[in-house]
Amino acid sequence: MNKLSKILSFVSISLLIMTNASAQDWNVTADQKAMTLGVAFTEDIQDAGNGIYNKSCKMCHGEVFVAPSNERALPLAPNLGATDWQAANTDGEIFAKITNGKGGMPPFSGSLSEDERWKVVAFIRANYDAYVPPASGNAAAAPKVEKFKGTIKDVEAIYNDAAQSFTVRVIAVDDNGHPAKAKGVKVDLFVKRYFGNMALIEGQRTDENGEVNVDATGLKANLDGNVEIIARTNDKAFAKEETVTIGYPEKWENPIEGRHMWGTSARTPLWLLISYLTVTLGTLGVIGWAVFQLLRIYNLRER
C-alpha cells in the first residue's frame, strides 16, 4: 500500500513539475534588469512590504528565511530568502518578475501598485546581508532603526478588560542585568482557533516601554469566555501560550433545538403536528364510524 502511494505521489509530482517547468522563461529585458530599488530601504518600508507579502505572496512562497539555497521542490514556489537566488537577481529583475509573472506565478501589475511592488522587493531584500541599497535618487539611505541592545528574557501578554485590548510586553535586562524596556523588538500575537492560529499582530515593533498595544475589540471567546493566545517575539526565540478570560461566556444557541420546519421529526412545529394528527385522526374516526355503520346494516338482516 505504501509502495503504491509512493509511486502515485511520484507520478503526480512529476507530472506537475513537467507542466510547470515547461512554462516559458522569465522575459526580463536589460532595461528592467538595470532598475534599482524604487523606494527607500528603511525598516518602515520593509515592514510595509512584509504586510503586502503576507497578503499576496506568502500563500505560495511561504516564510522568507535565510538559507544558502532554495530547498523547496516544485510545485511549491521557492524560498525568496535563499542567498544564491538573492545574489542572482537584481532589484529590477525581482520587480519585473512580480510585475509580469510566469506560468504558475500570476502577474501583479493589476493588483499591486508600482510602489507596493517595490516595497515587497525592499522586504525581500531586508534579511540579505550582502545587499547594498542604491544610494542615489529617490531611494536615499535612511538611518537604520536602533536595535535593542540588551538581553530579552521573556514575552508576555496581558488583557485589559476596559480597553478590550492586549498588551504584549517584552521582558528584558540590560547589560548590567537590570530590567530594561525593550524598544523596537518585533513581536507577534496569535489567537488559537479550531483550524489554526489567527494573527492579531505580526512583526510589530515594541514602543519605548517595550510594549505593543493590540486592539481586540469584538474578539470572540469560547463557551467558557476564554481565548487561548500565543505571544512571541517575531524571531520565535521566545513564546508564551496563555489562556485569557476576555469576557462573559459566549452564549451558544443550539440551532436544532427549536421546532423548525426543517428540523427532524422529533422537532416538528407543534401547530403542524397538532393539525396533522387532528385532521388524520378525525378523518380516520369518520371512516371508522362508517365501517361501524356497515356492521349495523349487517345486524339488521332478517328482521
Binding site: 356497515l294 339488521l300 338482516r301 332478517e302
Partner: peptide, 10 residues
C-alpha cells in the same frame, strides 16, 4: 351484501 334485505332501517 352484509345481509342486505332492504328494510327501512338498513
Amino acid at each position: 351484501s352484509l345481509g342486505w334485505v332492504g328494510t327501512p332501517g338498513q
